[in-house]
Amino acid sequence: MLRFTAERFVGMIVTMLLVSLMVFIIMELPPGDYADRYAFRKYSGTGVSVTEADIQAIRVELGLDKPMLLRYFDWIGNIVLHGDFGQAFAFETSVTKVIGDKALLTTAILFGTLIITYLVSIPIGIYAAVKRASFADYGLTTFSYLGLALPNFLLALILLYFANRWFNADIGGLFSAEMKDAPWSLAKAGDLIAHLWLPAIVLAWSAVAYQLQTVRATMSDELNKLSVTAARARGVPETKLLIKYPARLAINPVVSTIGFDVNRIFSELPIVAVVLGLTELGELLLRAYLDLDMYVAGAILLLLTFMIVFMNFISDILLAWLDPRIKLGG
């Protein structure tokens, strides 16, 4: 188990390095360079005319005149060694400050979504498989088709609309108006949880639809296994039998796709954030892209992806712990 964990850990680090290289390339993609945009931002509206020499000076100051590979190592080195993600041009402060506790909020949304996803999809998927070809089964299949087809921003709008009509409440955002700028406290955390359910449901929607199908399919397979018949032939009571034998194995594919779910959630996050007015990384990422504030965008993309890679690692370890056959294979 220790060796297995170590191997996976090294794999995770390698993937993270490669990802960082890719993210850096994306940061470099927009036409023109930072110096142009930096100068434009710094002096626009001030009436100062910018000369080519000024831009060149900025370029040297920011280290933009160095070759790309060298700048990559500067960038990633600063992140790894000093936790410094560079400058956020639009905010005229460091990226780290801008991201700040938005990363924490994003993590809260992520785990809220994951919890809802698994609490809903696993029991219902198992139920659908046991009651195969029943009315409930067809209903759930139809629902999961819809879940995959309905764009999440549309769902967000629909939920917002009904929340407005029925509760006459503005439930967008992550905090109520009076809590927004308050320092962190228990009351603020409670306020966050009260606001978290809407984005969590919206983001969990398609993940639930997907996992529901996975659980149902595996559970149906497992139900027909000889080991289930054998256990039944030993007189194991039906409910205990279902939980201990097929259901236990039907959870494995769910565990093995945790990283995939996190990926899906983060993928949808920016869009949902726009509609729901969430002030977290997804929304910031979108704003940074629109402003071409590439250090912020790169940092966020990197953070999100690292979180996915890390969850992949966790899922590998969990799976090895759940399924004794994996450890031997190495």
Binding site: L226, A230, V236, L249, R325
Partner: peptide
């Protein structure tokens, strides 16, 4: 087939062995 009486029969009174021993054990226990 779901009653307590048949469960007492299964295993306790009548035992069963299958053709594929690998498939008749659950792999995770």
């Amino acid at each position: 087939p779901r009653s307590r009486a048949i469960r007492r029969l299964r295993g306790g009174e009548i035992g069963m062995i299958f053709q594929e021993p690998m498939a008749s054990f659950s792999p995770v226990y």
